[in-house]
Design a protein around this nucleic acid. Structure first.
Lengths: 123, 123
DNA sequence: TCTGGTCCTGGCCACCCGGCCAGTTTCGCA
DNA sequence: TGCGAAACTGGCCGGGTGGCCAGGACCAGA
């Protein structure tokens, strides 16, 4: 019952696919040192697997567009992005425009939200 | 080499705490039926544990601010938000300003990103 | 009663954003 | 050797954004 540093690690599962969830439950349940969380219990870590059908294909973004997108997600203005990348504001606008097209967004906020949803960027 | 349904499940780790990451790596590495993903490899599931210090308490947002925030995350402009909520653009700006303050953001894009990171909203 | 918070509105203004036009260079591929 | 894609730059401009000022209405708690 000692609560030392090597106590069991409590894991919770958030798996969309029932079959995968079952297999992981069976496999992880027999690992000493790991315990699956009881319903509502606070876990040290969570095993997640989202339904892959929700992200059909990734969008083809150029490296430069990814650079701009990442800075956009940080809340950077076009001017700040330009400074950061060593290019002109006009060029930043050019890339932002392409991003709005490819991500089917109405503005930079929408673009970041869409990109995050599709897993293109990590917030 | 059969690729049957009971092949190994590939897990990737996204653990902020290095100690916890080490322990999980050691524990999971010895489980037959489970294999840890090589760098860049696509995993069937991911074990995540975010640093709890990064989200100490949730931010106190009023209901109206949450309304505005949700529409902001949809990429709506102030004008569209105003129409949607039946209030004036000035009032929308007022709430947006409060959100920027409370979320410590530099602009609406940053505000949405911060809110999503802290789990205030779901993208 | 008075104070504080929330919600609402207006005007004003500098700045930013996105879309339009135009052009250049560089690179790989047919 | 041409041709397209990517990256880059410029000017222009209408509209959006965010910060500042000011005010009023409502309601819970001290």
């Amino acid at each position: 019952m000692s609560a030392d540093k090597t106590a069991e690690i409590v894991l919770s599962l958030e798996i969309d696919d029932p079959a995968l969830a079952d297999r992981l439950t069976a496999l992880l349940g027999n690992v000493s040192g790991i315990r699956l969380a009881a319903p509502g219990e606070r876990a040290a870590a969570t095993v997640v697997a989202r339904d892959p059908r929700s992200m059909p294909e990734d969008i083809a973004l150029t490296q430069r567009e990814l650079d701009v997108l990442a800075l956009m997600a940080e809340g950077a203005s076009n001017k700040m992005i330009a400074r950061q990348l060593g290019i002109s504001v006009h060029t930043v606008k050019f890339h932002v425009g392409s991003l709005l097209d490819k991500l089917d967004a109405t503005g930079r906020t929408d673009a970041v939200a869409h990109a995050a949803r599709r897993g293109v960027i990590e917030l």
